[in-house]
Write a protein that binds this DNA or RNA. Structure first.
Length: 448
RNA sequence: CGGAGCGUAGCGCAGCCCGGUAGCGCACUAGUCUGGGGGACUAGGGGUCGCGAGUUCGAAUCUCGCCGCUCCGACCA
């Protein structure tokens, strides 16, 4: 992509409404613009990141055996009356009436809808054991939206719903999602830590929040340091195998958010030198809730013996749009964003220090073509800006690699390759620099 | 919804207290010099001062109402 043809309104100054760093940088980097309180337009650069994160979530859901579908944003109030949540949900739910005065709502979540779909289509135990998910915009009319897309009212979420015959089956399904979440966040370059969460009326041990650590996280978390070094399940993880060891390893050590934190237990279980307190952001939540919706909504199948059994359900959410901000919170410096390759809007920023100069233009064109042909995503700054402005803008938007081409280096047949994260700069012969970047990008695409 | 504040050019702000026909920096346009970390100079363009009433000869400025946004709290993926 040539920057001169792209739409990238980078801001030199920080808009005053942005409080936290990810919000500031998303505005500065031209990723989003607010359209109303807690509602954002995703500009091209932000949209690319959103899509990449979405795709990673999708791939890991698919790998874990979940099946994608797509449900609408608008729902009928009818099914919410069946579950009893229409009244219970309160003002967070955006209620709408259509021209015929029918009661509608903009979905804050989809348990009711998916349960209706599943129950209306399925009658046999042979159809149980399925997990369905979609990635769709949700709306929750938060009293006070804040922190940009981190706490917006409209947000993109992956929500999966499982239907199993027995609580034991449901537990295995839960474990699959648990493992899939570990992989999902790790692929984005994030350290995620599952923490026991409130299981509500069901009780038991089957609800976890996935917290990623970031200096500017919204809540305080306490955990055993060993959790930081645990291995994430590999690509070839066998989701049909026994996942208990993985779950045990990750749920054994102490980990709690401030609201669940028990200082005595923490001190008793965790040696002082292994105690860690940090800031965290919730990016996922998985939950087993049994028959909470299947019972009132009549989602049942016939077993082998002909008896009707109410399905055991769980739901599994990932805050996709929130993750964009979460990655930034976890990965930035004073100059701007530092994207991990896996979610970077472009993998390489190509900077032409002297647009209009025949030699640099030609060199850049050739590099651009070769990088693109090698399958690398390149944003080529071919504009007429000054060098300093180009460097600063490129640092703000945080592409992981910068290839700098100017007349001085070119005289010696050299280009400069800068690693955004470390700031390390290497001056290399053109061909060597090209190959170096291609290999480095490919090596980092898949982190786990 | 309780408390606090803000709304003046694309962004950041001054002007408001003490009414007199709107300004600064950055950005933008044209030109010249420049050219490896947001360069300099010259000349420009851009504003229903959030909206509506009121007071006044005269309102960005004073009064009232409304709208929007931000921050703190309760709530939350």
């Amino acid at each position: 992509m040539h920057l001169s043809r792209y739409f990238l309104p980078v801001l030199r100054e920080t808009p005053s409404e942005a409080e936290i760093i990810s919000h500031q940088l998303m505005l500065r980097a031209g990723m989003v613009r607010q359209s109303a309180a807690g509602i954002y337009s995703w500009l091209p650069l932000g949209h690319r990141v959103l899509r990449k994160i979405e795709q990673i979530v999708r791939e890991e859901q698919d790998r874990a055996g979940a099946v994608e579908l797509l449900m609408p944003t608008l729902q009928s109030a009818k099914i919410w009356r069946e579950s009893g949540r229409y009244e219970a949900y309160g003002k967070e739910m955006l209620r709408i009436t259509d021209r015929h005065d029918r009661e509608m709502l903009y979905g804050p979540t989809n348990e009711e809808l998916i349960t209706e779909i599943f129950r209306d289509s399925v009658k046999s135990y042979k159809d149980a054991g399925k997990t369905l998910y979609h990635i769709q915009w949700k709306f929750r009319d938060e009293i006070r939206p804040r922190f940009g897309v981190m706490r917006g009212r409209e947000f993109l979420m992956k929500d999966a719903y499982s239907f199993d015959l027995t609580p034991d089956d449901a537990r295995r399904t839960y474990y699959r999602m648990f493992a899939a979440y570990l992989r999902t966040f790790a692929r984005m370059g994030l350290k995620s830590i599952p923490m026991a969460a409130d299981t509500g009326p069901i009780g038991g041990d089957l609800s976890h929040e996935f917290i990623i650590l970031a200096k500017t996280g919204e809540s305080e978390v306490f955990c055993h340091k060993d959790l930081l070094d645990l291995d994430v399940p590999p690509v070839d993880i066998d989701y049909d195998g026994n996942l208990t060891p993985i779950i045990d390893a990750w749920t054994g050590p102490y980990a709690a958010t401030d609201e669940k934190h028990e200082p005595e237990q923490f001190n008793a279980e965790v040696p002082t030198d292994k105690q860690m307190s940090a800031r965290g952001i919730e990016v996922g939540h998985i939950f087993f809730f049994g028959t909470k919706y299947s019972e009132p909504m009549g989602a049942r199948v016939q077993g082998k013996d002909g008896q009707w059994q109410t399905l055991q359900m769980g739901s599994y959410g990932v805050g996709v749009s929130r993750l964009v901000a979460a990655v930034i919170e976890a990965s930035h410096d004073d100059d701007g964003i530092i994207w991990p390759v896996a979610v970077a809007p472009f993998e390489v920023g190509l900077i032409n220090l002297r647009s209009g100069d025949t030699a640099t233009d030609a060199a850049c064109d050739e590099l651009y073509t070769k990088l693109t042909n090698a399958g690398i995503e390149v944003l080529y700054d071919d504009t007429d800006e000054r060098a300093g402005a180009k460097f600063s803008a490129m640092d703000v938007i945080g592409l992981p690699f910068q290839v700098v081409v100017g007349p001085k280096g070119l005289k010696n047949g050299e280009i400069e390759v800068k690693r955004r994260g470390s700031g390390a700069r290497d001056t290399l012969a053109i061909e060597a620099g090209l190959n170096h970047v291609i290999e480095a990008v490919k090596a980092e695409r898949m982190l786990v």
